[in-house]
């Protein structure tokens, strides 16, 4: 039990500190690395409460894919040189009032949502029954997700699909005058189109590209 507590506090301290460092660190790429550290420690916490499936999915989706793309974009923007001076520059101080208003709004919204949250008494029973039965975390998640919540699950999938198609439509544009490499054309080229054997007379040479 003591070991459990030690691990819990280690991971949660790492999570909180790295979450603060995401906003506080001066180098943008460093903040992405701290974000990754945060994701990893959160997934460790998930595993500690017995939600191993969620923890692994967190690692695969957020750390393995989303954060890679974050890193990708931040590195490409080359913002490493512009130091992210915290509350110091003239530029950023103008945005502080707006940011403060928005963050207070979000803070009160969260308080309203969490304050009105009541656990159904049945949920505690379900929790107990799961821990007693020898069903693994993944199985129980699947049994709920694909039976009771199938419509919600499918709708969330649809929303993701719509978002993906929307992003593609917004960024897709047909540019004219761009040479495209056609894969089919390239591999179906025959010797006859590419090679020509010429009789070359001495001292005359051959003129190509006519």
């Amino acid at each position: 039990m003591i070991a459990h507590a030690i691990f819990f506090y280690t991971f949660s301290i790492i999570a909180v500190v790295s979450a603060i460092m995401v906003t506080a660190s001066k180098n943008t790429v460093h903040s992405v690395f701290f974000l990754i550290l945060d994701f990893i420690s959160i997934s460790c916490l998930f595993i500690m409460i017995g939600a191993e499936f969620l923890g692994m999915i967190m690692l695969i989706v957020y750390v393995g894919a989303v954060a890679v793309l974050f890193l990708f974009v931040v590195m490409m923007l080359n913002v490493a040189q512009q130091k992210n001076q915290w509350f110091a520059g003239q530029q950023s101080s103008r945005h502080i009032p707006v940011g403060l208003i928005i963050s207070t709004l979000i803070f009160f919204e969260i308080i309203i949502v969490i304050g009105g949250w009541k656990y159904k008494p049945e949920i505690f029973d379900i929790n107990n029954s799961i821990s007693q039965a020898s069903i693994s975390n993944t199985h129980s998640l699947g049994q709920i997700l694909y039976t009771d919540y199938i419509h919600v699950f499918q709708i969330s999938g649809m929303i993701l699909l719509v978002a993906m198609i929307g992003a593609i439509v917004l960024t897709f544009r047909q540019r004219s005058g761009v040479k495209r490499q056609s894969y089919i054309k390239q591999i179906s080229r025959e010797r006859a189109e590419g090679v020509e054997v010429l009789e070359v007379q001495s001292n005359k040479g051959v003129k190509l590209d006519d």
Partner: peptide, 18 residues
């Protein structure tokens, strides 16, 4: 011998890019 062994393998191999 964890329950989500294959997911663990997949997660670790996807972290290799870092």
């Amino acid at each position: 011998d964890i329950n989500v062994g294959i997911l663990y393998l997949f997660a670790v191999s996807s972290l290799g890019v870092y």
